[in-house]
């Protein structure tokens, strides 16, 4: 136990400042306030892998490491869509997963935000559309924000999540050609 406590003390706190969103620096307290203003509680995220290569999952895991301290900012990942405010969806949507993704979306209560993560989630990526792939996430469920990158690093994913929350807060969004509001890196 002594070694464990010593290791905690030695490693210290490595949390870094949050990223800027749409060119504006965001303070931890601002994130807190915005999430509270919209939801009145912590932001609950349900992650859905709809057919990714698992690269995006690795970076979403990384988002949960101490450097990003997202729980300290009022964002947590939950085990059920029924507890979620936001779905974080990766992958080109495989046809074998399309039904499960739609059902997950249906089971999610308002505000039902959706962030598509990764080049595949944005456009189908290198896998494209085929007999087995529906391509981009917005081909299957409505998407609020799409975060490009293969995979996008944790900060980009966090920016996408915050952008989705802000958009529902009334900040205007710029739809791209596909009708999906893309959050550019």
């Amino acid at each position: 136990m002594f070694k464990l406590v010593r290791q905690i003390a030695r490693a210290g706190i490595c949390t870094e400042a949050p990223p800027s969103v749409e060119g504006v620096d965001v303070q931890p307290s601002t994130i807190h306030d915005e999430i509270l203003a919209i939801l009145g509680q912590a932001l609950a995220i349900r992650e859905v892998d709809a057919g990714s290569c698992n690269g995006c999952e690795l970076e979403i895991h990384a988002l949960n490491n101490p450097y990003y301290n997202i729980e300290g900012r009022g964002i947590k990942f939950v085990a059920s869509p029924r507890h979620a405010d936001l779905l974080l969806v990766t992958g080109p949507v495989s046809r074998n997963m399309a039904l499960a993704l739609r059902r997950t979306y249906d089971a999610t209560p308002a505000p039902k935000l959706v962030v598509a993560v990764g080049d595949c989630g944005c456009s189908g990526g290198i896998f494209g559309e085929s007999y087995a792939s529906c391509g981009r996430v917005s081909n299957v469920i409505p998407v609020d924000v799409a975060v490009p990158g293969c995979p996008p690093p944790p900060l980009e994913i966090l920016r996408g999540i915050l952008a989705a929350v802000r958009q529902r807060h009334g900040v205007s969004a710029r739809p791209d050609a596909s009708g999906v509001r893309t959050h550019a890196a």
């Binding site: 080109p92 495989s94 085929s130 007999y131």
Partner: peptide, 11 residues
Amino acid sequence: LGYAHKGIERR
């Protein structure tokens, strides 16, 4: 399994 099948081999 098979849920993540996205047609890689044909791609």
